[in-house]
Amino acid sequence: MFSASHRLHSEAMSAEENHSTYGKCNNPHGHGHNYALEVTVSGPVDEHTGMICNLVDLDNFVDREILERFDHQNLNTLSEFSGEVPTTENLCASIYEIVQEGFRHARLEKVRLEETMMNSFEYAGGAEIWK
């Protein structure tokens, strides 16, 4: 879980188009969410440990690389979103890329990000998700 603010606004659109596309998410002062993150990994069960990977390793990676980067930040000010609107679609893909690049102990399957209790997003590196 992490909390961050954002404003949905595209420099490529007129003020009217930004307003009609993003509605109240276009408020220039921004607004925030509590994002709930799920990272799904897969792999063979290690015969010595009985685990796919050590959860401590996964927790530490997510704490260090995701939560420390995004928690209590304004997403619009981060380098990932200097040329991209910080929608939860794009945030989900950014988090996937970070885990995919850096976490070596198991295979990343997908990232699921809840923006609110009613809206959630999933990304599997562009692959189809069946479940």
Partner: peptide, 9 residues
């Protein structure tokens, strides 16, 4: 390809 889920009751 991104998946979006909307919940409703």
């Amino acid at each position: 390809m991104v998946y979006l889920t909307r919940k409703a009751e």
